[in-house]
Design a protein around this nucleic acid. Structure first.
Lengths: 344, 344
DNA sequence: TTGAAAGCGGTACCAA
DNA sequence: TTGGTACCGCTTTCAA
């Protein structure tokens, strides 16, 4: 651009953001080559660099506040250490939070970079594409988005060495840890039948995104001999619970199995406000063994699904990444256990 | 490698993973140049490509299952659209989950890629470096990790155009949305004093990672004239609550302000099991206005901190990214409001 | 012990 | 309307 004339500047080009320091800048400042910088900062074993040089490089990097560019690095390397964890943040409870924590911790210990990718409102195809763009070495789908075989293929073609699904159903091509939600429903219904109940209302959340869990729980309950099951839609609100409790009498039911302990709590409260006694007039059962269940009076009977530890899952991921073919596509089933308390 | 001899293969080199398709592969298959592929797939406005060519390219991409490489793209572009959301998954409740959902949704609508980065167990420095490697255009710290001015500088030098903090304290260099946790404590104590209580026990969680919130809440309560405040450590468990309830009589207190509604619920339950009447013998106050607070009997009085909507925060981020200098470093304060119910 | 240079995948300028 | 090509930042042979 010519310096002789001074064209009117646009309104606010205040300061062109200062350029991000690169390894070339570090090299220049330290008076060495970019190669040397790379060797020093990565503690390359295969090459001996003199101590004075190392110091110079380290100081230069420090002075400039140099941080390597992950994208450039992985582009060159041809692969990443990213483990992608899709999340769609349904309020799924502290049990799940704790598990996520463990998992992230363990994966970081294995030198993976855990990236949670919010996929709320994306279709399976859109989500899979978006994830594939990041070239993750592994994807762990916790069942919050329904993944098709085609989606799994997309991810694998994009270099994913492992795709694990933890959810109600297994997906072709992926290593599946099947949480059999149907078993949760079955255990609950069996318990209620044992307690002499026959006509069971199963509370199904109206909230979107929970069908993957709630539908199999309902079906599981239906599959139990001796149980007559009625599906009861209910939202996670006091109003909805109150409405359900009010028409309860006309339903002719003697037990309720709620989607989880939180829905059970809402409903039990509403029952009590209606003057219904738990468990005499109506038995109430929850699921997931949340802490609140033990604090309620009567204490809430529940069904707990054993989760794998985060560490175990992290190990599974790592194994699959190292030897994708060695890991035969097992279906690890997680057991559901009944915890009888006072509400049934 | 020679084909004439057959050297013993290493145990399991089963199939070298098939290479990930690149835009060059698409170009080859479509019989065009890489440039053309780029134009077509990005719907470049500045260039007119014939319809037949477009179709050829699209079909080739489809056939190969081509997905662009985000790292390569952003390397070339010199910037990303990544908004980094550090998470350390303390079980912080549905209020927060909902907010995160809104935020992610709104940011995606603004064409940002939201990446949650699990930073559990990292120091501020380690975390800032790890984040900086991803070259996010913006970072939104929800206060789960204490960010120093130096950390903010690291991020900015790495190209972050906006660093927002939402938390109890403002950080130099960052645009801060200050959630004044002290105000929460103050509101609670004021309310209790109004109700004629003087000696207030403030429940402080023993769980790590909550100090950033709990300490200011305690101090806020201390600052209220007429209130004598005693700090009471308690873990999020029935046992801990029961132990506290047992020694309550010896403490000479007439009210409890718990860290949040969940801790309040635990404690209230333990009080009742000890035969203490709420609110006659002891007033109990929670915080955060969780749903459970309304389900308890007596209904739990609480203090609610108004969160900004996810959409508003997303807008703030976008504005800061577009015009970093235009956004003067405001301190947006979020108000705390008291919700008196039956437990006080 | 250190440096020069190629190349990872994609974009955009300049020519044709 | 399309193709050739330089370049983004980093790692890693290969030479010196």
């Amino acid at each position: 651009m010519s310096q002789s004339s001074k064209p009117p500047k646009p309104p606010t080009p205040p300061s062109p953001p200062p350029p991000v320091p690169t390894s070339a800048d570090v090299a220049r400042l330290a008076g060495v080559s970019r190669a040397t910088v790379s060797y020093v900062l990565n503690n390359a074993e295969a090459v001996r660099i003199s101590e004075p040089t190392r110091r110079k490089v380290r100081e230069a990097a420090e002075e400039l506040g140099y941080v390597p560019h992950a994208a450039a690095r992985s582009l060159r390397a041809g692969h990443t250490r990213i483990v992608l964890l899709p999340t769609s943040h349904v309020p799924v409870g502290p049990l799940y939070s704790t598990f996520l924590n463990e998992l992230q911790w363990a994966l970081r210990g294995l030198d993976y970079t855990v990236v949670q990718y919010g996929s709320l409102g994306l279709s399976g195809d859109e989500a899979a594409r978006a994830w594939a763009e990041l070239r993750p070495v592994a994807v762990i789908s916790l069942g919050e988005i329904a993944l098709s075989a085609h989606n799994v293929a997309t991810l694998k073609r994009a270099g994913a060495r492992a795709v694990l699904t933890v959810g109600p159903q297994s997906v072709p091509g992926a290593h599946a840890l099947v949480m059999d939600q149907a078993e949760v429903g079955a255990r609950a219904a069996e318990h209620l039948v044992e307690r002499g109940r026959r006509r069971i209302g199963v509370v199904v959340p109206e909230e979107a995104g929970l069908e993957l869990f709630s539908a199999p729980r309902l079906e599981g309950a239906r599959s139990v001999p001796g149980a007559e099951v009625v599906a009861l839609p209910m939202a996670y609100s006091e109003e909805s619970a109150a409405a359900l409790a009010q028409r309860w009498g006309s339903l002719g039911l003697d037990a309720a199995f709620a989607y989880n302990d939180e829905y059970a709590m809402l409903l039990m409260r509403a029952f009590q406000d209606e003057g219904l006694r738990v468990p005499q007039d109506v038995a109430v059962m929850g699921a997931d063994d949340l802490l609140i269940g033990r604090l309620l009076r009567p204490r809430l009977s529940t069904v707990r699904l054993e989760m794998p530890t985060g560490e175990r899952l992290a190990g599974l991921v790592d194994q699959a990444v190292r030897e994708p073919s060695a890991v035969v596509r097992r279906h690890d089933l997680m057991a559901a256990v009944t915890l009888p308390r006072d509400s049934t």
